[in-house]
Simulated scan of single mutants.
Amino acid sequence: MKIKVINPNTTWTMTDKIGEAARAVAAPGTEIVAVSPAMGPVSIEGFYDEAFAAIGVIDEVRKGEAEGCDGYVIACFGDPGLAAAREVARGPVIGIAEAAMHAASLIGNGFTIVSMLERTRATMEHLVHAYGMSHKCRNIRMTDLPVLELEEEGSNARAIIVEECRRALAEDHSDSVLLGCGGMSDLMAHITKEIGAPAIDGVSAGVKLVEALVSLGLGTSKRQAYAYPVEKVYTGSFSQYSVPARKA
């Protein structure tokens, strides 16, 4: 099985961390290919960033289809480009926010999301609602840390995140915390040990969900919503994304 794990931003130190987290949980025989797009934002901290990151995600899924990938994980907690990527892919495509929320719903009655900049709260709120998890999400806590602070040596970002996770358990009465950024993927074991409760990394959960779906012989349904894109010409700088007629 070959799974492509896509970090939608272009910061490769984060991509390397994400790849390590994915390989740590992958089953024997599962090949993890961790990538960043060739173009896009260095971090994703708003709707503008997400719009451009989605193009890079779609580009990597298109490449993955030619490379024989069996499934994909989108390793950003905003799940940018998820629906469009599913239109392109034969196999399953899982966003880490969706994966983390579903995992949390199976092991506890309520969860708290702990994430980064306050301005991205709206994205988290939208996804909680879109994934039908409003009755499970106890709170969304933003540390107001820039995403790239997770990559800085000597940063106190880890300590701030751990403390916010502790507050989530004490004040929100949550059963688990969701690590609301792909850049936190290396913190799952550490935070779980520190707080004495599950800290769920969506990258790890996403990999296991893709493995399960592929093992069951399940790919993306092409019947309605995620049917392949309509044959169409794109113009200007997007001409490379024109959709050719599919062979019968």
Rank of each mutant, 00 (worst) to 15 (best):
M116S: 15
T120G: 03
S134Y: 00
W12S: 11
K208L: 15
S242K: 04
G196A: 08
H135R: 15
A75F: 03
N9S: 09
F77V: 10
A66C: 07
S237I: 13
Q224S: 10
G108K: 03
M101N: 04
Y226C: 09
E67C: 08
K17T: 10
P198Y: 05
E65Y: 05
A225C: 00
E164A: 14
V128C: 07
G236T: 05
Y131A: 04
I74E: 08
V114E: 05
P37Y: 00
E211L: 11
L106C: 14
E67P: 11
D49G: 03
A26H: 04
V128T: 13
I107E: 10
S115G: 15
K222L: 06
L187D: 03
E31A: 13
A104R: 02
V114C: 06
V93E: 03
G78D: 14
A34M: 12
V35N: 08
R141Q: 15
A122N: 06
R141G: 09
A53K: 06
I161G: 08
V35Q: 06
E171I: 08
I191C: 10
A157D: 06
A99I: 10
V57F: 07
A212M: 14
R62V: 07
R138V: 00
P80K: 02
G132R: 13
V61G: 01
E125S: 14
R158G: 01
V207S: 07
C69P: 00
A168G: 15
R121F: 10
D186V: 10
L148A: 04
N109F: 01
G236I: 02
Y131Q: 11
V35F: 04
A212H: 13
R121G: 04
E231W: 00
A34E: 12
V25R: 06
F47L: 14
E211W: 11
T11N: 06
H102A: 05
A170C: 01
G78K: 00
G110Q: 11
S105Y: 07
C137R: 12
H135V: 01
A51Q: 11
Y72V: 10
V243G: 05
S242L: 00
G56K: 02
K4S: 02
I113M: 04
E149R: 11
K222C: 07
R121H: 13
R86N: 05
G95R: 07
K232M: 12
G40E: 03
E60H: 00
M142D: 05
L117I: 13
I195Y: 12
V203P: 10
I191P: 10
I160E: 10
H126N: 13
E65A: 06
I113F: 06
E20P: 01
D70H: 13
D186K: 12
R167K: 15
G40I: 01
S237C: 02
Y48R: 04
